[in-house]
Computed example of a mutant assay.
Amino acid sequence: MGIFYLFLFILIILQIKFAITIKLAVRKLEKNQITQELAENFLKKIRSVWWVPYTTKYFNLMRKGYALIYVSQEVSEETKKKLLSMMKFRLVKGI
């Protein structure tokens, strides 16, 4: 039973870490003008997220981050395609 609780505790900690990472990454996009460098930093941070916490709030934040990068003229098409494939891999729907 002890191993089960340890595993559960680790999953809860990871869930919180991923939620905070998503929230901070999108907030940084909202506050700054979107550039290629900022988009690549967003990609790097989202790569560290193994899964999106299964709530509407975090899926909407991921969609919002994608939309902010997608409408930017300064971000290359290659970066936008990488972001789209990453969102699909993280099971973010509605993009």
Rank of each mutant, 00 (worst) to 15 (best):
Y66M: 03
L83F: 03
K57L: 13
K88P: 02
N60E: 14
I22A: 00
T21G: 01
L83S: 02
L83Y: 04
F9M: 10
P53K: 09
K82G: 00
L43D: 06
I20M: 09
T79N: 06
L8V: 14
W50R: 08
F59M: 05
P53W: 09
N32G: 01
I12H: 15
R27F: 11
K44M: 09
I20F: 09
S48D: 12
F89N: 05
Q36M: 11
E77C: 00
F89M: 02
K23H: 15
R90N: 02
R27A: 14
S72L: 01
L8D: 14
K81H: 08
A67P: 03
W50S: 09
T79Y: 06
E40V: 03
F18Q: 12
K81I: 14
P53R: 09
E30Q: 12
I22D: 06
F9H: 12
V26A: 08
Y54C: 05
L24H: 14
L68Y: 04
K45H: 08
V26H: 00
A19C: 08
M86I: 06
S72G: 03
L84A: 01
L43C: 05
Y66P: 01
G65P: 01
W50L: 15
F59A: 06
L83P: 02
E77T: 13
I10L: 15
A67Y: 08
I22H: 09
Q36H: 02
L11T: 11
F7E: 15
I10F: 15
A25C: 04
N32Y: 03
N32F: 07
L61G: 00
M62T: 01
L14D: 13
R27P: 00
N60D: 12
Y5P: 05
F7N: 13
K28M: 11
A39K: 02
F9A: 12
R90D: 00
M87E: 02
S76K: 08
F9K: 14
T56C: 02
L24Q: 14
L11E: 13
T35E: 04
I46G: 00
F89I: 00
K28R: 05
W50N: 03
